[in-house]
Structure formats: structure tokens, C-alpha cells
Simulated scan of single mutants.
Amino acid sequence: MALEERAPLDELARIRKSIDNIDAALIHMLAERFRFTQQVGLLKARHHLPPSDPDRERLQIARLRALAEEAQLDPAFAEKWFNFVVAEVIHHHEQIAANGESE
């Protein structure tokens, strides 16, 4: 393969490596986020609080949509991502409450 043909493939590999690094960071950040939401779930179960907090969720959606706009990310995508994560968090909180993991 000629050098001029190889250059785009090298650039593609470099860009993909950066994407892979970002994906790894996102996974680690999500894991950290879920460690904290686990603590929230335990606290809610211990004090018999509901697994979801619609008022907080509404505020967070508005905040994340604004952040997405500032970052030039589709706000609808940011909201979909948040709703997906929150659904999983609520599911975990319900499991914690049902399993009596509040002690």
C-alpha cells in the first residue's frame, strides 16, 4: 500500500483510539455514578422514601438539556440518555427496598 493510501487509515486508527479512550472514561464515570446512586437507594430504603423523585428528575432534565446545548450536543439525546439511566437507577432502588437492604 502506498504511503498516500496509508495516511487516511493511520488517521482513522488514531481517531478511533481517542474514541475508545473516551468510551472507557464514560464507562468508569457511569460506574462511579451508580456507586453514588446505590448509596441514595440505601438511604431512601432506610427512611422509606420513594424510589423516584419526579421533581428532581424534571430539574435535572432541564439542567442537562441546557448543558447539552452549551456543548453543542442534541438536547433530546441528552434527555433520552438521562431517562435511560434514571430508569435503571429507579429499578435498583426498587430492588434495594424490596430486598430489605436498608439495614
Rank of each mutant, 00 (worst) to 15 (best):
R33V: 03
P8L: 01
R35A: 05
D10T: 01
L30I: 11
F34L: 11
P8H: 03
A24T: 13
T37S: 06
A25C: 00
A24H: 13
H28C: 00
Q39E: 10
I19E: 13
I22P: 01
D23G: 01
I19T: 06
D23L: 06
F36L: 10
M29A: 07
S18H: 12
E11V: 00
L12W: 14
F34Y: 13
R33E: 13
I15K: 03
M29T: 09
F36R: 12
L9S: 02
A13K: 13
L12D: 12
R33F: 15
L9F: 03
I22A: 02
D10A: 01
M29V: 10
S18L: 15
M29Q: 14
A31L: 12
R16V: 05
I22K: 04
Q38M: 04
D23A: 05
T37P: 01
D23T: 04
L12R: 15
R35K: 09
E32V: 04
M29W: 14
D10Y: 08
I15Y: 07
E11W: 04
R33Y: 15
R33P: 00
D10W: 09
A24C: 08
E32W: 10
A25F: 05
D10P: 02
Q38E: 08
K17H: 13
A13Y: 08
A31Y: 07
A13N: 13
